[in-house]
């Protein structure tokens, strides 16, 4: 391996091909390169001398092992992902990711920039369909039902799997309209002119829903006297909580969060983190974050993606942060690169 940035195709393929074999036939690891034939401990000792030179780019010559990604948990998985590959044109963004995400918990996805965390997240509600040139292979099942097959109702899928984006993106409408937008568009709430004329307006139901969602998003106290104001007049942290409220309004089962606090100050971040912990009692939360302390604070289990779109390690958050099995993950978590 070179010390240059790992962009050339030949570098990729040489590291990729053995990976495949490892995942398929774990017994063959002994036939690999000499410094990998020894046990894990001695490998670490051997590599420790030259690890610093490699790990500045996160491209150590380390093979991913199947057992690093095994995580046993009680209860049934909400998501079961198998061999997920994503290509953006020629770019291989995710490589054979397999993971099971438990229900009613917080799962953090961490890793350096460009490692495929967001891509993986966007596969879970098929938002990647909206990106031109994206190709998804593999299987993603939610409650045992495959979502990458013909006849999947994207409207229903995205109602069940809501998403909160990196930068707060409320619509340029009033706070009330923002929260009621999803249900109104799905026909759950009718407050249009026709409904009002026919006396079937659901205004009371809408107001109840708006209040409930805003309370769940810990925003009600701050905005209850100005629901008619434009949402763009709120502060960044309030806007992000409004987006969470908007996401809750369609009654999802899963909430995907793509670095929801990266654009916020520490106080707003703390409020969002508290909120995430509360939400995990009722919802399955999957959160992408760059902030490792944040992941350690709020998540139940952590998945680490490293350069090249590989899932390297997955397990209980305490275990991943205190006793990472992969050397590269350890380097990443202790801040040697990334």
């Amino acid at each position: 391996m070179s010390e240059t940035t790992p962009t050339s195709e030949t570098d990729r393929t040489t590291t990729e091909e053995p990976d495949r074999e490892t995942t398929e036939e774990p017994n063959q690891t002994t036939t690999e390169e000499p410094n990998q034939t020894t046990t894990a401990e001695s490998t670490e000792a051997d590599d420790s001398t030259n690890a610093t030179t490699h790990t500045t780019t996160g491209e150590a010559d380390e093979r991913v092992r199947e057992e690093w990604r095994e995580y046993e948990f009680a209860g049934k998985p909400k998501f079961a992902v198998e061999d997920l590959d994503v290509h953006y044109g020629d770019d291989h963004a995710l490589q054979g990711v397999s993971i099971e995400i438990p229900e009613n918990s917080v799962t953090a996805l961490i890793g350096p920039s460009g490692c495929g965390k967001s891509t993986f997240l966007r596969c879970l509600n098929r938002m990647n369909d909206r990106i031109k040139g994206a190709r998804v292979d593999g299987s993603v099942r939610i409650d045992g039902r495959e979502i990458y097959q013909d006849g999947v109702n994207l409207v229903e899928l995205r109602k069940r799997v809501g998403m909160v984006f990196q930068s707060p993106n409320p619509f340029p409408k009033s706070i009330r309209e923002n929260v009621a937008y999803g249900p109104a568009k799905h026909g759950d709430i009718e407050t249009g002119l026709l409904a009002r004329l026919l006396g079937r307006s659901d205004e009371a139901a809408r107001d109840r829903l708006v209040e409930e969602c805003l309370r769940d998003a810990a925003l009600w106290e701050e905005v209850n006297d100005r629901l008619e104001d434009n949402a763009l007049g709120l502060s960044g942290g309030q806007q992000q909580r409004l987006c969470i409220a908007r996401c809750l309004s369609v009654d999802p089962e899963v909430i995907l969060m793509d670095e929801p606090a990266s654009a916020l100050d520490p106080i707003a971040t703390a409020r969002i983190e508290d909120l995430i912990e509360q939400l995990s009692e009722e919802y399955t939360v999957v959160i992408v974050t760059h902030n490792m302390q944040q992941a350690a604070r709020i998540s139940d289990q952590t998945a680490v993606f490293l350069t090249g779109g590989e899932l390297v390690e997955y397990g209980d958050t305490d275990q991943v942060f205190e006793d990472p099995r992969s050397e590269r993950v350890e380097d990443y978590i202790t801040g040697k690169f990334g």
């Binding site: 509600n125 938002m127 909206r130 899928l157 995205r158 109602k159 937008y181 999803g182 568009k185 908007r246």
Partner: peptide
């Protein structure tokens, strides 16, 4: 994106 993520057509 926000609208699509809410399942709106």
């Amino acid at each position: 994106d926000a609208s699509a993520a809410l399942g709106v057509s």
